[in-house]
Design a protein around this nucleic acid. Structure first.
Lengths: 119, 119
DNA sequence: TTCCCACCTGGAGCACACTCCAGGTCAACC
DNA sequence: GGTTGACCTGGAGTGTGCTCCAGGTGGGAA
């Protein structure tokens, strides 16, 4: 069973150590096990869960919503339908973000073309 | 020449009145003309510029960068090449955002499929 | 004339998501 | 034995981008 030191978890997840501690403190991450001298040892599962969090965070999910998702996960398999609902709702928001960005991008392209035309 | 009251500018731009005042205060918006009793009267140009700001803001440009762009615009036509550079750089970032969102979205889709498969 | 309402200003306060700090522990290397 | 470096904790501080507030003005409806 592989474990990760804090430095390795930072490397692996791209989160800063402070962020990892913060996520644990607010309950986004279940209490990470400690070794004999009190230092964190992250499991493969922790790293996997952090990958999920990174995905949700980077698609703009607020921490409060990630917390709700974390609670569903902790509550057990009977919450899978709720998790699906939550992710589907989030997926729609991601879709909307993409569409919105693409539309704004057209505006930017037009502006650039306009500037080119008046140079 | 059409002018807009504060309420109309809010309606037109989607920014709150506080945000419009804030943008003026920090120099994102040049000082808006006032009527005899000191109230703002937005011109068509103000509204158009605010449309540009909305586009930049909604595509994630930080205020500091919008300020640089605003200064270029104020400095006159000889800054058009610089404006193009700035917008092109921003365009690349928007492109990267879209690509990133699309990739994360695939992860979310996979997760949803996984959840569906274990229900 | 009295009320309300939209608006004004300067400045304080807030939500979010971290990020930093002080003071301490422990293991390992010199 | 001493020093270094990674890590610990609780709690304070920070940056961004607004948002709210107190106290005041001016114009129009009742």
């Amino acid at each position: 069973m592989t474990v990760y030191t804090p430095a390795e978890a930072v490397e692996e997840t791209g989160f800063s150590l402070d962020t990892l501690r913060y996520y644990e403190k607010i309950g986004l991450l279940e209490r990470v096990t400690r070794n004999a001298s009190g230092q964190r040892r992250f499991t493969q599962d922790d790293i996997g869960w952090l990958g999920m969090l990174r995905c949700l965070r980077d698609t703009g999910m607020p921490i409060a919503t990630m917390l709700r998702f974390a609670e569903l996960v902790r509550a057990g398999d009977h919450t899978i339908p709720d998790r699906i609902k939550l992710l589907e709702e989030h997926d729609r928001q991601v879709q909307a973000q993409i569409a919105n960005l693409a539309e704004r991008q057209r505006y930017i392209h037009n502006k650039i073309s306009y500037y080119r035309s008046v140079m």
